[in-house]
Design a protein around this nucleic acid. Sequence first.
DNA 1: TCTGGGGTCCTAGGACCC
DNA 2: TCTGGGGTCCTAGGACCC
Length: 435
Amino acid sequence: MDDHPFTVRSYPRAILHIDADAFFTSVEQALDPSLRGKPVVTGQERGIIACASYEAKARGVKRGVSLHDARRLCPGLIVLPSDYESYSLYSKRMFSVMRQFTPCVEEYSVDEAFLDITGMRRLYHCSYEEIARKIQQEIHKELGFTVSVGLSLSKALGKLCSKFRKPRGFTAVPGRYIHILLQRTALEQVWGFGPSTVNLLTKYGLRTAYDFTMRPQLWAANLLKKPGREIWSELRGESVWPVETEEKTTYGSIMKSKTFTPPSTDKEFIFAKLVKNVESAFMKARRYHLRPRMLGVILRRQDFRHDGLEAKLSRATSSTLEVMPLIRTMFEQVFYPQREYRSTMIFMGGLEDDHSDQFDLFEDRLKIDAFARVTGAIDDINHRYGKHAVRSATSLFLPHKPDSPRDSEHARKQLLFPGETARRRLNIPRMGIEV
DNA sequence: TCTGGGGTCCTAGGACCC
DNA sequence: TCTGGGGTCCTAGGACCC
């Protein structure tokens, strides 16, 4: 059936999705030309492959494979540690090449972007396909690695297109061919359909993206709510997700976690790991002028379940020092002796802007600022000399009320397991601070 | 993908108010 | 004290993304 039920116009909107091919290893190969054409992987620090070059992929070395297995699969494999600073630098360069063509660029992730080039044919005196190819070629020329490009009528379709052929792919699907693309697209390949949605849709007898778009929009909306309605439109070529050019300058939440091998039962060791995460989370918050109103401490066990606790702060703060006693209290309540843990995590929620006029007393403002400076200094020291210095300094502050045994018992019962959350409130005592 | 380190958005339901 | 209608805000948790 050649009849297509969707939009007839070629490109009511022309949306590009650009996806770098094997980005991390591509950057490594761009930085060191002797690596080109060779099987390269990154992720040495974790022992698990984070990114594999196409040469490595050709030999069965994929993301997530252990280095041990990878070396067996591919003798002569070149293993590199991740170098996020270089990746971030190349990422910025890649986006700036795109911006030479249009300001309407959304930096979706370190290696992906959406571009809206609607209405630019006149400017470049050529078709959307040709503009897209020019951008693709320019990135290759400027940066020395390849990207895959998808061109279609919406972000969801653009994404499908760029995935369709890789590496160095170029896939353009105008309105009249959308149905063919969708017929070849399994539900799980649709952006926004995860395992649980695919599961649900399968129960209704759906297999492809096309099947989904053949149901009435109301059906999709009733079953999958807002996302379902939007994905339905996007897949049919009606763009409802605009390309967002606004730069990200803030966060709704911040989390820091780190896995350690081997797992440990050593209480102080585990606490030290937690403190390290707390410090880097707070440093990040301060960098963005944010203060959390809520903190979560989570310890992940070896079987990947976790124990956790959340605390609401009586006042938002960006001071590591101020919060440390609370962290200790939470840790004490979450930690089970003898239990093996493999990672710690700190979660910050309810982030508030640091500039809000919360303090109407000038004096308060001064004290808080001074405290912040001290915290910064301690962070530095901590960074250089390790956590113990900070911990002892911390204990100097702290009119801390220990919890009664009953409270602790109560808290124990509220430890978190997957699919089950309990919250418990703890307040930071308001402190008089002498600086 | 037997689980790395981040994040976001959405919805239902309860609390509280008139 | 009960019944009824309606609104807003917040929270918990699910689902998804790279």
